[in-house]
Structures are given as structure tokens and as C-alpha cells.
């Protein structure tokens, strides 16, 4: 990316030497920081200031990305994909692959330009209407399709088991038991049900 922007090998080497620390942020949000960093170099900011910006930005974008992508957008799209997959077959997985990749690739590309245009102010984008609206839309979709999961049930006596089992898992999640504990609980449950 650096080589692409500057086209000079020397500049690339200098920047590579300055940024060889661990960089840990959300993978889909990294482009915002890259864009803003390129702008900072263009404006001739000092490498110390740039490093300070990166340290702050990577944490902020990591938590924003986790909330937007891992906790909202991806599970909502997966839920839609599961319902379509179980009802209509291959349409479900195809729908997920297209919509999810379109969204995050657009986001990654847009991050470079937004980061460059806004410079260090890009950090305020996290609280921008665009992000909050997208998150809210996918929360709504997630809630709607959680309700629509009921179209997968059948009118059979066995399906009454859904009530106690769902209640049990909701309680485990609300009491913040670890994911490993919940998976072990599912495993034990499957063994018990299979034995009975």
C-alpha cells in the first residue's frame, strides 16, 4: 500500500522501519487507520504522533468492529442464511456469501478513502450516524429473523422441548457462563436425549 501511494522504494523502507510494532485491530476496520496514516504522512506529521494515533485508533476500531461485525452483522446474516438454507437449500449459503462479502469489502475499500479524507478525525466516525444506523438495522433484522426461526418448527409433541431448552440456554447466556461451558452443556444434553 505504501509503495502504491508513494511509488518510491526508499519511502517504503523508511515507513516499514517505523511501523514494525504489533498492530492489532479489527480486520475490517484496519483500512480506516491505514487511510488516516497515509494522510498523516502526506501532511508531514512526526512519526511519534503517528504512532500515538495508531495506538489509540487500533483499540477504538477493534471494539467498534467487534460490536458491529462479530456481534451484530455477521450473526444476523448467518441467521437469515440458516433460515433460507433450511427452507430453500443452496439459496441460504449463497445469500450469506454475497451479502456478507459485499458489505465488508465495501467497508474495507471505503475505509481507505474515509481514513484519508478525514485524517485523524476518522476516529469520530465510530460514533457517526452511518455506523450506528447500520448496527441498528442489523439488530432489527436479527430480532425479526430470531422470531422467524419458528417457521422451522413442526406441530409435533417433541417440539415442546424447545420451551425448556431455550429457557435453559438463555439463562446460561444471561448469567455469562463461558462459551466452552455452554457447548459442554449442549453436548451433555445431546447425549442424554440420545440415550433416552
Amino acid at each position: 500500500m505504501v509503495n502504491l501511494i508513494y511509488g518510491t522504494k526508499n519511502k517504503e523502507d523508511t515507513i516499514m522501519k517505523e511501523h514494525n510494532e504489533l498492530f492489532n485491530t479489527h480486520p475490517y476496520m484496519a483500512s480506516y487507520i491505514i487511510g488516516a496514516t497515509i494522510r498523516a504522512y502526506d501532511e508531514g506529521k512526526t512519526s511519534e504522533d503517528i504512532k500515538r494515533f495508531i495506538t489509540i485508533a487500533q483499540t477504538s476500531f477493534a471494539s467498534a468492529g467487534d460490536l458491529l461485525f462479530w456481534q451484530t452483522l455477521r450473526p444476523a446474516l448467518l441467521l437469515i442464511s440458516v433460515i433460507f438454507g433450511l427452507k430453500f437449500g443452496i439459496i441460504g449459503p449463497v445469500l450469506f456469501i454475497i451479502s456478507y462479502n459485499a458489505f465488508h469489502l465495501f467497508h474495507r475499500a471505503r475505509g481507505i478513502t474515509d481514513g484519508y479524507n478525514k485524517g485523524w478525525d476518522v476516529i469520530y466516525l465510530i460514533k457517526a450516524k452511518r455506523f450506528i444506523m447500520v448496527q441498528h438495522v442489523f439488530e432489527i433484522l436479527g430480532a425479526l429473523f430470531t422470531g422467524l426461526l419458528f417457521i422451522l418448527i413442526a406441530f409435533k409433541i417433541n417440539y415442546l422441548l424447545l420451551i425448556p431448552l431455550t429457557s435453559l440456554f438463555v439463562i446460561l447466556l444471561l448469567r455469562r457462563y463461558s462459551a466452552t461451558f455452554i457447548i459442554i452443556a449442549v453436548l451433555v444434553l445431546i447425549v442424554i436425549i440420545a440415550l433416552v
Binding site: Q71, T72, P75, A76, L79, V82, E139, G142, A143, F145, T146, L149, L152, I153, N158, Y159, L161, L162, L165, T166, L168, F169, V170, L172, L173, L174, I182, V186, L189, I190, I193
Partner: peptide
């Protein structure tokens, strides 16, 4: 039934506010 019950609880936990 098991998949749906875990899926429902995950959906309720993640999205319902």
C-alpha cells in the same frame, strides 16, 4: 430441536433489546 433451541437463545441474547 436442540439446534433451534440454542439458535433461539443465541438470537434472543444477541438481538433482543
Amino acid at each position: 430441536i436442540i439446534g433451534l433451541s440454542v439458535g433461539l437463545s443465541n438470537g434472543l441474547y444477541l438481538f433482543v433489546k
